[in-house]
Simulated scan of single mutants.
Amino acid sequence: MYIKRILLGVVLVGLIGGGIFAYMVYGTFFTSNTSFNNDEAAVFIPTNATVVDLEERLSPILEDFDSFESAADRKGYLSNIKAGRYKIKKGMNNNEIVNSLRSGNLPVKVSFNNQENINDLAGRIAAQIEADSISLVSAFNDKDFLKANGFDDANKLSLYIPNSYEFFWNTSAEGFRSRMLKEYNRFWTETRKNKASALGLEPNEVIALASIVHKETAKVDERPTVAGVYLNRLRKRMLLQADPTVIFAIKKETGNYDTIIKRVLYRDLEMDSPYNTYKYAGLPPGPISMPDISAIDAVLNPKKHNYYYFVANVEKFGYHMFAESLTQHNRNKEQYIRWINAQKIKR
């Protein structure tokens, strides 16, 4: 009888202990552990993250980080923390959270357009993925990479076709650059290449001209007409005489790309720069900004006409008046000069 009581006691203690253990396991793995009110929260885990990094990013959205850490340790996650962007849903338990962080890396949408130089582009991208602007600038300026893929320092911005793309947040600078090379090659289809060839231009020359067209007019419907003007001038071996190239030359010379120049002065036209198309024939060495795809396609599909000149239309702002002859252009230009003087725009 005594032995039976001892055995019964042992069994009861075991049951109680097992119950407590089961309760603790259940609480650690299967009890809701989120503390936010929205339906879901985004978590960004950096490359080579430690438990300290996890605590910094997860504590604001969890009820109890310690219980999460315990569950993550038992599931082997802490020895293999994965970088990326993850989604935690309201009401998730630690088991579900660990599973999400282990295999639920979600892409982010990366968008860019109209950047005027590599540094601006790097800053724009760094705000959207993990790679910082310094590593991005370094990757963008890599001379070996540029040479191997047909680019140089002047036209390297041509590689980046403005659009929206999906990337994993933890993409490296080199990974971003490599993806953009693939997108560049994908963009330049045989159809586009053939159109460029018919114009006597290489793809990077098309982008250089498109950057001028983009700067000349924000009106997408007018861009094929403007592109036609410059192509007519190129065919006649005339100077392009594009004000935006002079403005870019000034910015490049000063190193201040934030300078706002509303009026190009006659003295600016004498600036000795390969980007000054009043002084040097042909296209500039590279793009003066990042043109929209609409501007690139405008060059590839220009409007056929006999215009060689254009000036801002003061009666229809945003658009231009086009002319076939210099005489007609000078008459149009007089209206613009009167208007700009009336506005007292000096620079």
Rank of each mutant, 00 (worst) to 15 (best):
Y275W: 11
L239H: 14
D152W: 05
S158R: 01
L234I: 12
S172H: 02
S273R: 09
K195G: 13
V229N: 08
M180W: 00
I134C: 01
F310H: 06
E69W: 02
Q241M: 14
I207H: 03
E190I: 09
N114P: 03
H214S: 09
N99S: 15
S158K: 01
D272Q: 14
A139N: 10
N141H: 13
K147G: 02
E315M: 01
H214C: 04
I293E: 13
K333W: 08
A198S: 15
D144S: 15
S294P: 11
P107C: 07
T191V: 14
P285E: 08
T34C: 00
N93V: 09
A242L: 09
D268L: 09
K344R: 12
E334Q: 12
A41D: 01
T31N: 05
E174D: 13
D144E: 15
K109E: 09
R267A: 14
S100H: 04
R74M: 13
V10W: 04
A122G: 06
N155I: 02
L181D: 01
I20V: 15
L106G: 04
H305N: 11
A173Y: 02
K75G: 00
G9W: 09
M290C: 04
I293M: 11
E116W: 02
F145K: 07
V220D: 14
R85P: 01
E324P: 04
K279Q: 13
F310Y: 13
I161D: 01
G228C: 12
F310M: 14
K344P: 03
L136M: 10
S35R: 01
D258M: 04
T254P: 01
K156W: 00
N163A: 12
A22P: 00
K89D: 11
N256C: 10
I340S: 01
S325A: 08
M180S: 01
G150N: 11
L326T: 00
E183D: 11
D39A: 13
L15W: 08
P224I: 04
D153R: 10
L283H: 07
I6V: 15
Y266M: 11
M92R: 04
Y257T: 03
L234S: 10
F65H: 07
F21D: 00
A173S: 09
T217Y: 04
R235D: 14
P274N: 11
H305C: 06
R85F: 03
I16P: 06
D258V: 03
P244G: 07
S59T: 15
P284Q: 04
S178K: 12
L157R: 00
I6Y: 08
V43A: 04
L8D: 06
G14N: 06
K90S: 13
Y319I: 07
V264R: 07
K303V: 07
